[in-house]
Simulated scan of single mutants.
Amino acid sequence: MASIINVILSGGVGSRLWPLSRKARPKQYIPLFEGQSLFELTVARNQGVVDRTIMVGSIQNVDLAKPYLPEHKSQTIVEASPRNTAAAIAFAAFACNPDDILIVTPSDHLIENQTQYEAVLKQGVEMAQQDYLVTFGIQPNRPETGYGYIEYEDNYVLSFREKPNLETAKEFLKRGNFLWNSGIFCFKASIYLEELFRFEPKVFRASKEVFEASHHGVLSEELSAKIPSKSIDYAVMERSERIKVIPSQFVWSDMGSYDSLYDYLKVKGHAVDSAGNMVIGTDKYVSFVGVQDTILVYTEDALLVVKKQASQDVKHLYEELEHGASPLL
């Protein structure tokens, strides 16, 4: 009998939330959300729908995940060298029966309205049982430039759009037939693998070789290096004719940058001064003079000061530190 399996992707480093997020402890494992982490919340919210959980994560932080995975109903696939989401999902699909339904979720999203969320997932499972590749789109409530978009009509995808500039995002909102791309997917293991083989045979074959050579769920770093690094969006979702989208109303944020974290913390009562400035990570007295909508982030070894509107640019700072082999990563 086919099972429903939550595939949790946890290979990212959360570069736009540096310095809170580090390689050794990425953002999804930081207990910022009323004492819980995004990973912990992700596992819990899907348990009412799925039979098992498969976590595909980095060897650097897999031990952080294990305490939150359901005992006797979970499996861990450890990437020594992550090769993007197309391969990560392929590993999980190879570990399943062909008719198993995979609900693929990132580990760093914040979702509210559990009842509506579960209802949408169940709708996705029904579509996946008909051999569709299902993606979930979020109804936008602002012209967001940090998310990709899906142009749609009913449950049909007309196009996928990259992160837009502000004017384009406003136009998307005005037109009313665009959804935020949530990065949550649902499909049969076999259908995903068929489409991956069809569009990216090199990714399919290399991923299969790596999976079959794995030892106790740990993948070979040397073999993994041969896998082309492709996202599921580019490798499959933007190219397949089997795609369906479900417009969704549950409250969603990918918590990918400080503007998202700021909005969440503000709603939860975190202190914000009269000019919209916020301090994260310290109880020390901080005074902002002559600036507004600015976020100060404190850690023991680093300070970040960023305008809320420039939160996406923290990724560029992270890349500079990475290029310089900084120990602060």
Score class of each variant (00 low, 15 high):
V7G: 02
I8Y: 03
S15C: 01
L17K: 06
L17C: 06
A24L: 11
Q36H: 10
S37I: 01
V49K: 12
D51R: 03
S58F: 04
I59Y: 13
D63P: 00
L64I: 01
P67C: 06
L69Y: 12
P70H: 10
S74D: 11
Q75K: 14
Q75V: 10
A80Y: 04
P98A: 11
D100N: 12
I103L: 09
P106W: 02
N113Q: 14
Y117G: 02
L121S: 09
Q123I: 00
G124Q: 00
G124E: 02
Q129H: 12
L133W: 00
V134S: 00
E144G: 03
E151L: 07
D154H: 14
E162M: 07
K163I: 02
K163A: 07
N165V: 07
E171C: 03
K174E: 00
R175W: 06
R175I: 00
N177M: 05
L179R: 02
I184C: 01
F187M: 13
I191V: 15
L193V: 10
F197W: 01
F197S: 07
S207A: 04
H216D: 10
S224W: 07
S229C: 08
V251E: 08
S253G: 04
D254G: 04
M255Q: 15
D259Y: 06
D259R: 06
K268I: 03
H270G: 07
A271Y: 13
D273E: 12
N277A: 05
N277D: 11
Y285L: 15
G290Q: 03
Q292C: 12
E300K: 14
D301G: 08
Q309F: 10
A310S: 15
